[in-house]
């Protein structure tokens, strides 16, 4: 076909056909970056949800902080941590209008070689997210920002931010398989006041008022306690906490996690029949859940 590229150009293109192929490192590095940024947006989303709910309910000034800590286990055993800080200041105007500003700065989420996959959601809205994923990180005071100063300065332990290598430093892991997987954990930091009711004006703060955790923070704390109870060999307490979760957070965001934990707890208590019933239902409705493998491997999963 006369329109075709001439032979000389074709020969040249053939010689450079593979010239822009990425390396395996490129593949892993970019993948880790994408995951870190997705995890970051979810962390910010968690903060947004937590604050929005509380704000809508009580019209208080809320400072919510989600801490994302991620371990990175590379060939060198480097660890990295990330902090997601969302500060939300809802303000009640003349009417019922609430303006919520969320500023979240999320720093590097590290990579865990061979770890479990943290799956994150694009469903979470992230009003304002700045993400640093591929550059060396420092946690500056500016990591928190809001329209007005927080009611109380949150005590973010600086140690969290200290040993933070760049993503580059964490990704060259020994394994050539899917190398870097981010695990992000959002936990409410107990030292940080989550909500301070303000009575009338947003500027008026009663420092003696007990903090009112947002529903999601409370749910997260409950699930964390249940998991911890299971981990230290107290499945009875885990079940009590999970029952508490069922009562207080029916249909909550962490229901799937709770079901998976409950199966583990029931197995630990020897309540195999109940575990099996629950596992069957769990696998029927969450077959692709990241918990599915552990549920299948449990006493209720029929794999043993």
């Amino acid at each position: 076909m006369s329109d075709a590229l001439n032979a000389r150009s074709q020969a040249f293109l053939r010689s450079v056909q593979d010239g822009d192929e990425p390396t395996r490192d490129d593949y892993d590095r970019v993948r880790a970056g994408v995951k870190a940024r997705l995890a970051a947006s979810v962390a910010a989303g968690v903060a947004a949800i937590a604050t929005a709910k509380t704000a809508a309910a009580s019209q208080t000034v809320v400072t919510a902080t989600a801490t994302v800590a991620a371990g990175a286990t590379g060939a060198a055993g480097a660890t990295t941590a990330a902090i997601a800080t969302g500060a939300a200041i809802p303000m009640s105007g003349a009417g019922a209008a609430l303006v919520t500003k969320l500023a979240a700065v999320v720093l590097v989420v590290g990579a865990v070689a061979g770890g479990t996959t943290a799956i994150v959601s694009s469903r979470q809205a992230t009003p304002t997210t700045t993400t640093t994923a591929a550059t060396p990180v420092d946690v500056a005071p500016s990591a928190r920002s809001s329209k007005r100063p927080p009611v109380r300065p949150p005590a973010i332990p600086p140690a969290i931010a200290a040993p933070v290598p760049s993503v580059e430093a964490t990704t060259p892991v020994a394994t050539a398989t899917v190398a870097a997987t981010a695990i992000a954990t959002a936990t409410p930091a107990p030292v940080i006041p989550l909500a301070v009711p303000t009575g009338t004006a947003p500027g008026t703060v009663s420092t003696e008022t007990a903090p009112v955790p947002s529903p999601l923070d409370a749910e997260i704390a409950l699930v964390r306690d249940a998991r911890e109870a299971l981990r230290v060999g107290d499945p009875t307490r885990a079940v009590v906490l999970l029952d508490d979760h069922s009562r207080r957070f029916s249909g909550g965001a962490l229901t799937e996690d709770c079901d998976a934990l409950r199966i583990q707890a029931l197995c630990a208590l020897g309540r195999v029949g109940e575990a099996r019933d629950l596992a069957t239902r769990f696998l029927a409705s969450h077959s692709a859940s990241p918990h599915a493998p552990s549920v299948r491997a449990s006493c209720g999963g029929g794999e043993n």
């Binding site: 995890a39 979810v42 962390a43 989303g45 968690v46 994302v68 061979g114 770890g115 479990t116 943290a118 799956i119 994150v120 959601s121 694009s122 469903r123 979470q124 695990i183 992000a184 954990t185 959002a186 936990t187 997260i220 699930v223 964390r224 998991r227 299971l230 981990r231 060999g233 965001a253 962490l254 229901t255 799937e256 996690d257 998976a260 934990l261 583990q264 197995c267 630990a268 969450h286 692709a288 859940s289 990241p290 918990h291 493998p293 552990s294 491997a297 449990s298």
Partner: peptide, 22 residues
């Protein structure tokens, strides 16, 4: 990675994600 017993893989973020189809 096989996740066998007592230490389930769940994290709160996993769970938040859990409401999105895996």
């Amino acid at each position: 990675t096989s996740l066998q017993h007592a230490e389930p893989p769940s994290t709160p973020l996993d769970a938040v994600r859990g409401t999105v189809p895996a």
